[in-house]
């Protein structure tokens, strides 16, 4: 799922993106496998727990980096991060309410996938281009 073209040339961020793609891929593989839901559930919950924390760390690191390089679009970018965190929290609450319903988990999987690809292949590439243009003031 990770593609080399997603690389923005900032090692910490690229490594974190790779990890996010790896985890989302794993999540989808589990969700879409033919195993019984009971067996999948443990794995699903583990991955979600991890993702919830990792996303927060990754966003914070990305935002710190953007501040360091005085990235002009950082406020807009941060707003996108906040929106995403709120979405995840909403899903976590919904899952806790419905007892980790399989359909809700699948729905979250689909949204996570599309969101991750769009954000990393789009918004985050702008950071890479900004750095490459040599506009970094340090």
């Amino acid at each position: 799922m990770w593609k080399e073209k997603y690389r923005i040339g900032v090692e910490l961020i690229d490594e974190q993106h790779k990890e996010l793609f790896r985890r989302v891929t794993e999540f989808i593989k589990t969700v879409q496998s033919q195993e019984s839901w009971e067996k999948k559930l443990v794995h699903v919950q583990e991955t979600l727990e991890f993702m919830k924390d990792y996303v927060v760390i990754h966003f914070a690191d990305e935002e710190t980096y953007q501040a360091e390089i005085a990235y002009p679009e950082r406020e807009k970018h941060q707003a996108t991060h906040e929106q995403f965190k709120a979405e995840i929290e909403k899903y976590v609450a919904k899952l806790n309410d419905d007892g980790y319903n399989e359909e809700t988990v699948k729905e979250l999987g689909g949204r996570l996938l599309a969101w991750l690809v769009y954000h990393v292949a789009g918004d985050d590439q702008k950071i890479g281009r900004y750095v490459a243009q040599g506009k970094v003031v340090k």
């Binding site: 879409q32 699948k106 729905e107 949204r111 769009y118």
Partner: peptide, 24 residues
């Protein structure tokens, strides 16, 4: 293409990814 995995049917996972793309 998005996931790198073969998809068999229009299940909630697939339609949710399509929905998010349409949303974007």
């Amino acid at each position: 293409i998005l996931s790198g995995m073969e998809m068999e049917e229009l299940d909630v996972f697939v339609t949710s990814a399509l929905g998010e793309m349409a949303n974007i």
